[in-house]
Amino acid sequence: MRTNLSKHDTAAPVIAGLVVAAVTLWLRHGLLEAGLLPRDCSLAGAPAAACAFKTVLVQSFLDQRLGWASLIAGVLGFVLSCRRLAWAGWLAGVAGLVLYSYDPAAIGALLALLVLVGTHGEHGQGEREPGEQPADGLRVGRLG
């Protein structure tokens, strides 16, 4: 049995998630934890742009803000079946998983991912051909 990634449009969310994870890992380990950003931005000679970037980056994961944003977007995207909110929930969730917001980011990302890879189009939203049985798409033979 072969898996068809293009059938449910899973390639785009997977690739986008990998890109966001790579960028977020680089920000966390390559800049923040490696000490490339200024340690003390209260000093007179500290570069303003680097300090502003560091402040925004650190504030994004304090109090799990990034994870809560993912959870809100993921829940709204799931409830409203809105792909734009689902994309926001998915990408914020991936970043939140890397940046210390595990619990809310994981739930938000998974709910968003259900919307992004859910079936839509020809057999989405419970639409079937007249006379078609639920098991017909599974290639299960009739019993008896």
Rank of each mutant, 00 (worst) to 15 (best):
M1I: 07
M1Q: 01
R2I: 00
T3G: 07
K7Y: 02
K7Q: 08
K7G: 01
H8I: 04
D9T: 04
D9P: 01
D9Q: 09
A11G: 09
A11S: 11
A12P: 00
P13T: 04
V14S: 10
I15L: 02
A16D: 06
A16N: 10
A16R: 13
A16S: 15
L18Y: 02
L18Q: 01
L18F: 02
V19Y: 02
V19H: 02
V20K: 05
A21S: 10
A22D: 07
V23H: 03
R28Q: 09
R28Y: 11
H29D: 15
H29Q: 10
G30N: 10
L31F: 09
L32R: 01
E33Q: 07
G35I: 13
P38F: 06
R39P: 00
R39Q: 03
R39H: 08
C41E: 02
S42W: 05
L43N: 00
A46T: 03
A48Y: 03
A48H: 04
A52M: 12
F53D: 09
T55K: 03
T55G: 01
V56D: 10
V58W: 13
F61P: 09
Q64R: 15
R65I: 15
G67A: 14
W68M: 14
W68S: 14
W68T: 13
A69Y: 11
S70Y: 10
L71H: 07
A73Y: 12
G77E: 05
F78D: 11
V79Y: 04
L80V: 11
R84P: 03
R84N: 03
W87D: 12
W87P: 03
W87A: 10
W90N: 00
W90C: 01
L91R: 03
A92V: 11
A92P: 02
V94S: 01
V94R: 00
A95I: 10
A95E: 07
G96T: 12
L97W: 06
L97D: 02
L97K: 02
L97S: 02
V98F: 05
L99T: 14
Y100I: 06
Y102E: 10
Y102K: 09
Y102C: 05
D103I: 14
P104A: 11
A105F: 09
A105S: 08
A106E: 06
I107A: 15
I107N: 07
G108L: 12
G108Y: 13
G108N: 08
A109L: 12
L110I: 15
L111F: 15
L111Y: 09
A112M: 05
A112Q: 03
L113N: 00
L113K: 01
L113M: 06
L113E: 00
L114E: 01
L116P: 00
L116V: 04
G118W: 13
T119F: 07
H120M: 06
G121D: 06
E122V: 13
E122G: 05
G124W: 02
Q125M: 12
G126H: 10
E127W: 11
R128Q: 08
R128M: 13
E129Q: 15
P130V: 13
P130C: 07
G131H: 08
E132S: 11
E132H: 05
Q133V: 08
Q133C: 09
A135W: 08
D136F: 07
G137A: 13
G137T: 08
R142W: 11
L143M: 12
G144L: 14
